[in-house]
Amino acid sequence: MSHNLLKGKRGIIFGALNEMSIAWKVAERAVEEGAVITLSNTPVAVRMGDTLKLGEKLNAEILPADATNVEDLEMVFSKSMEILGGKIDFLLHSIGMSPNVRKKRPYDDLDYDLMMKTLDISAISFHKMLQVAKKMDAIAEGGSILTLSYIAAHRTFFGYNDMADAKALLESITRSFGYIYGREKGVRINAISQSPTLTTAGSGIKGMEDLMDFSERMSPLGNANADDCADYCIVMFSDLTRKVTMQTLYNDGGFSSMGMSLRAMKRYSNNEIEEFKNEKGEISYG
């Protein structure tokens, strides 16, 4: 159902790859709510993914670009303003990738060159995006910028690896740039910390399905899916949230506030308890 929350607004969505992508869902909802948008992803992602299909569906022009490259970002903002007929009202940074995760390098045996790529792609690209936009004065007064984070920025999750470091940096950039952009241009910047979601990027994380099961049992409302996240993004892009900035906002069914839930407790109490003797011959529980 459309509420015309973004009627007359212009936006850029970075990172829509296929129908599993949160960015894909956000793009669809933005147009449904009355916005006009452009889409951007890496040239290889545009070739290999379904971004062209989404562009045709939404009548949105696609601007292939490397979000870690300043000149590419300048092109995206310049052409978007030309295509859409004015400054940008909202922007989504939905970009993240860890070569170390892809190569199954554990956190205590990282390839540091790959780690720098993780940070550049998943976090520093957001700073570059914001800096380019600000220097070009590409974002309209009162505009809204979002990035997607995860609670691993604050807590340790097995298998999340150096992506956790990237998300922590991403949230720091949100706060630091949010202060400057808000003070000088009235632009708000926030991060949405989403439930584990089975996107193309998320599926590469070790134990993702088990993590989603655990999160589902822990969260009183259950996991938020990509459609739920898209709805939240639309509200954050709208004028209903004009005074919200520099925040990490949790869209996770309550998971971030939980210690132990009844559903999770029952899950573990129903499992057999592994018994073994320690070196003293005492009974211990694994």
Rank of each mutant, 00 (worst) to 15 (best):
P99L: 04
N100H: 10
N100L: 06
N100D: 11
V101E: 07
V101L: 09
V101T: 15
R102Y: 07
R102K: 11
K103P: 02
K104I: 06
K104T: 11
K104Y: 06
R105L: 15
R105W: 05
R105M: 12
P106Y: 07
P106F: 02
P106L: 04
P106V: 03
P106T: 02
Y107T: 05
Y107N: 11
D108L: 12
D108G: 03
D108S: 09
D109I: 01
D109T: 00
L110H: 13
L110D: 13
L110W: 09
D111V: 11
D111L: 04
Y112V: 09
Y112F: 14
Y112T: 15
D113F: 11
D113G: 15
L114R: 10
L114K: 14
M115A: 15
M115I: 06
M116S: 14
K117Q: 15
K117A: 04
K117R: 15
K117F: 03
T118I: 08
T118A: 05
T118E: 10
T118F: 01
T118G: 07
T118Y: 07
T118C: 12
T118P: 05
T118D: 13
L119M: 13
L119T: 09
L119H: 06
I121A: 05
I121L: 04
I121C: 05
S122F: 00
A123V: 01
A123G: 00
A123E: 03
I124P: 00
I124G: 01
I124V: 15
I124Y: 08
I124N: 08
S125R: 05
S125D: 01
F126L: 13
F126W: 01
H127N: 05
H127L: 15
H127D: 01
K128A: 03
K128I: 00
M129L: 15
M129H: 04
M129S: 14
L130P: 04
L130R: 02
L130I: 11
Q131D: 12
Q131Y: 05
Q131M: 10
K134D: 10
K134L: 02
K134W: 04
K135V: 04
K135D: 10
K135N: 13
K135T: 03
